[in-house]
Design a protein around this nucleic acid. Sequence first.
DNA 1: TAGATTGTTAATCGATTAACAATC
DNA 2: TAGATTGTTAATCGATTAACAATC
Lengths: 197, 197
Amino acid sequence: MRNLNSAQIRKDLAQFGEFGRRGVGYSVGDLREHLTKILGLDTPRRVGIVGAGHLGSALANYRGFRASNFTVVALFDNDQKKIGRAVGDARVRVYDAREIARVVRDERVDVAVVAVPARAAQSVLNQLMSAGIKAILNFAPASLSARPGVKVKNVDLTISLETLSSHLARPRAVSTTRPRGVRARRESGESGERELG
Amino acid sequence: MRNLNSAQIRKDLAQFGEFGRRGVGYSVGDLREHLTKILGLDTPRRVGIVGAGHLGSALANYRGFRASNFTVVALFDNDQKKIGRAVGDARVRVYDAREIARVVRDERVDVAVVAVPARAAQSVLNQLMSAGIKAILNFAPASLSARPGVKVKNVDLTISLETLSSHLARPRAVSTTRPRGVRARRESGESGERELG
DNA sequence: TAGATTGTTAATCGATTAACAATC
DNA sequence: TAGATTGTTAATCGATTAACAATC
């Protein structure tokens, strides 16, 4: 966890303009509005999910989106048994994956999610790029190549677990209330070679 | 994307010991082995997933774990209809969530995944901590409080989408092959005020 | 004017890169 | 010895923090 201080926050905010008034402060409402806009969170986004398996279905029903500007407007699959059905509580129906281009246009999909098996992921990405999608969240454990101008963000669940694993491997990262004397310092291996101070 | 150079890699590696031989180089095999160990990826980890809904089921069947040291050994749910069943291709059966402590012990679970609705997440986390779990991956859109020594890593799918959204908001991040003359520089708003050089 | 808080410049700190001695 | 490549020190760069003038 990194700590911030007031100077840094003031400086960072000033990068984007003068939002505050000297001697008075910042207007919370205005600041929130500005930041939302800067981060591109003011525009509602329409999400299309490719793959109506467990993961795709979970995402279509994900409650975390409720408070955000993201709405899932389409699910795609190539399994005829799933096409036309609704998934869970989601209002959205499953479209044939061959109709990606048409549905993206009709439903004005902004952002796509790839939730298909790894072997199908690149092909799906290609279809999405052809359909004009510029922002894609990829859950498939595959490294995909996108053309310039298209942003692919990979969510690799293995990597998430691996960072936890390194925590288990190094229990010295655990916080302690023991005073940091010579002994503690030596154990943690922190710049013990500093001679002054 | 950050670039690394050889000096930095040498320095970083040297932090953990002398893995190379001057004049010769690094042994790829040895280096890989060392790094795997340093990152704590040498020990097989046994994963327990709480919540056998769409997300939990997706994770239990996630192919990305195949090449890793993670094995899903238990699924938990409080839905009697699910308990005792297998989920998808996964060999693992669903246990009663009330048995978390016992199963964690019997199955030697190292790492837990929380894939339950937000309202149940803190309570599940508490159970996992009581059972002695020290590393938890949380998918619920809730900010949980863990006691010191317990590492909770949150995977917030909304945040992942939001970073994509900011890409859509700022198309100037798109790479271009156009030579970076005065015009291009002014557009991208990069330190144009530098006067020397 | 006194007090408060921003925007901004100057000082500090840490991380990256360059340079080079040590080693094979 | 000449060539190559590491480990490590010195130089550079950028980011964070401190200080302060501008403003209300």
